[in-house]
Amino acid sequence: MDTIILLTLTGLGLAALYFLVASGLSLVFGLADVLNFAHGLFLGVGAYATWWAAGNLPGAGPDGLGFVVAVAFGVAAGTLMAVLVELVLIRPLYSRTIEQVLVTVGLSLAGVALLQATWGADARPFPRPEWTRQVTSILGAQVPNGGLLLIIAAVLVLAAILAFLQWTRYGLIIRAGVENREMVTALGIDVRKAFTLVFAIGGAAAALAGALGSVYFGTVSPQQGGSLLIFAFIVVVIGGMGSVVGSAYAAVAVGLLQQFVNYYGTSGLGDICVVALLAVVLLLRPQGIAGKVATA
């Protein structure tokens, strides 16, 4: 029984990580039709900025309030990066979908190489508060605190994004834009501001995922974002592009499936099951659990 609880909670931790990456991807794709390969880079920037801040920024540190400051710095860096990418690189190419994909591909290659050039290709130990290394006993299962932190963060982010979408004017514009962008533009609303906003939200969530994911794994490396990104893509497609709630459901399904099959089957089998799930969802319901039909 404790094994099942442990697997469920670690699976949910993984799901939280996927959700943090996928929610931004899904919003960006749903609103702006940009398949953002550079999203993994935002994650890497967030992780490295947190790591750097914990060691160098005055007031920040690996513990207590200093750690909160370090994570806030990392999230700010990721958000800034995302906004800059949107303004400088993506904006001139709107409505040219393929070129946008190509630019983000180039950016992900160059950006990861730049991280690697600056801080080396090897994983570095991540400064993390003492309590995240310990475990909490929940119903007899010893659950690592880093995973619980991820789950709490993801739930808070989900609630914040939903509240933002539901109760603010910009949230309304974003929801309407995902539904029908041409109509929103025709009504005289500048959707491009919303694009920047969506990129900022996605960048912040991804940077948070980078920082807290590094706390969970204990290390930070340039390639971290890339390997998470593929599963985040799968979560986005299964959940339905443009739907944050769909991403949350899909992230939970993917995280739990991966964790349970990897434990009870051979290691690696869970990853394959996830892709099989993707194939089944696409064949039966190409638009995903919730969301508009995924087309170019």
Binding site: T97, V101, I230, I234, V237, L282
Partner: peptide, 28 residues
């Protein structure tokens, strides 16, 4: 035959996912 049932970006994602299976099979 499976992937071409989708088009555009979804097609790109599905091919990416299948290639990922190949990478996992080789690495594990």
């Amino acid at each position: 035959a499976v992937a071409l049932r989708t088009i555009g970006i979804a097609f790109a994602m599905v091919t990416l996912a299948f290639a990922q299976v190949g990478a996992i099979l080789v690495a594990r």
